[in-house]
Design a protein around this nucleic acid. Structure first.
Lengths: 233, 233
DNA sequence: TTCCGCAATAAGTCTGACTTTTAAGTCACA
DNA sequence: TGTGACTTAAAAGTCAGACTTATTGCGGAA
């Protein structure tokens, strides 16, 4: 779905990373590179590169004469898109999905307010187009199409905010929305109220009404949060 | 200040990372590992490990027969604490500081509201202690002490929110506050109004008044934003 | 008991040879 | 002249082995 595993070390990571984030190696566990390289049937150099990457994500710490120790989850770089993907694929998806949605409900309203002030004409047009697309796919089990427009909609808002930190959360939001569609309410059509809200947000941004854009976006994200509460209490 | 350079590859990173984030190698530039390893006087294996880390931060992309190409800034993992530190040390600090402060003003009020609901007695106590510490160091050029309490204060709020994504922004906030103190208003005592606001936030959290905690924290972060506007318009 | 030094251990480093991918150039053929 | 297949070379990728270094923990001496 995202990028292919380029190189042996990447393939090792795709196996070792999820194992760690899933808690298969509890915090404090000690791994040894030689053993790992035998287990995965790769050379030590390849395994060392993989460990370096895990280390840069703060998933593990490598120390001489000790080995590679797994760090407690509280120290992980949980904003790393790869870590997010690994965790969303694991067992504590619900908790992960909830904390990401809470983050969304803090960030997206603020981003929408900024977008209302800074969005270019092209961005307003694209936003409206997305909203229309969402309406068009809101009924009759066209969830894939709806999801695509939904993701694009929120990505445009985040980008149009003009704030780099907001913009870089586009991928996170995409993962959250994808996760929600694929694993939770795959069977029923999206909430009509949410669709209307998106249309109104596009309107508010187009009109430069920051306060209204913020408030409407807050309703969207709070709706997403309530939906989570209903499905996983 | 943070962690020491453990290992050769880390020392290479501390030199190469900032160079890339500073734009010394413009996006699209092609580096070659052999040349780099000669330039930095390390073996290829060490340089390869460094490149792998840069790759995991999405700062570069390594492709066969091409080399290591620098990615455009829009693709960097700007939430990686190491990347944040590198960028704050570079030339576009002001822009970086601003976008981080905007992020703060979106996240911290929400975190404070949650903290008011979920903070433990111990956290409330620690928060009050920090606020007292800030008051005690708010006059007479005790900026180092003030900064320490300020950082701790915001870290407690973010942790007490109970949201993991918020909690992990503690380091980011610490970097921002440190940057502000060290490079901008080192000479003058902190704004008395800000000190008062912190005391009131501690109060509101202690009393479980989410709305007030949120509003007061918003005032703090907006104040920080205005301060930036004054210093770097 | 405490302190110091020794030895074992696992990561760290370097080197050189080899493999694999792939961009780019070349040549023949239509 | 253009297009396709083929060749070449350049750079990353992989591996194996020897060596270095830091660190821990043990055991003996004060």
């Amino acid at each position: 779905m995202t990028e292919q595993a380029r190189g042996l070390h990447a393939r090792v990571l795709e196996s070792l990373g999820p194992a760690i984030t899933a808690g298969e190696y509890p915090p404090g566990s000690v791994l040894r590179t030689d053993e790992l390289s035998q287990e995965f049937e790769v050379s030590r150099s390849v395994m060392r590169e993989a460990v370096r990457v895990l280390e840069s994500m703060h998933l593990v710490e490598s120390r001489r004469r000790v080995g590679v120790t797994v760090r407690p989850a509280a120290e992980w770089n949980v904003y790393d898109p790869q870590v997010i993907r690994w965790r969303l694929a694991g067992a504590d998806r619900p908790r992960q999905l909830r904390s990401l949605t809470v983050l969304r409900s803090a960030v997206e309203p603020a981003a929408a307010a900024l977008a209302a002030r800074h969005a270019t004409a092209a961005q307003c047009a694209a936003l409206t187009e997305c909203a229309i697309g969402m309406v068009a796919t809101s009924r009759g089990q066209q969830l894939e199409g709806y999801l695509r427009h939904d993701i694009e909609f929120h990505r445009i808002i985040l980008n149009a905010s003009g704030n780099e930190m907001f913009a870089r959360l586009g991928d996170v939001v995409a993962e959250v929305l994808t996760g929600r569609t694929r694993h939770q309410v795959m069977f029923e059509d999206p909430d009509p109220a949410a669709v209307t809200l998106h249309v109104k947000v596009a309107e508010a941004v187009r009109e430069g009404d920051a306060v209204r854009a913020e408030e409407l976006t807050r309703e969207i994200t709070l709706g997403a949060l309530e939906e989570l509460d209903v499905l996983a209490p």
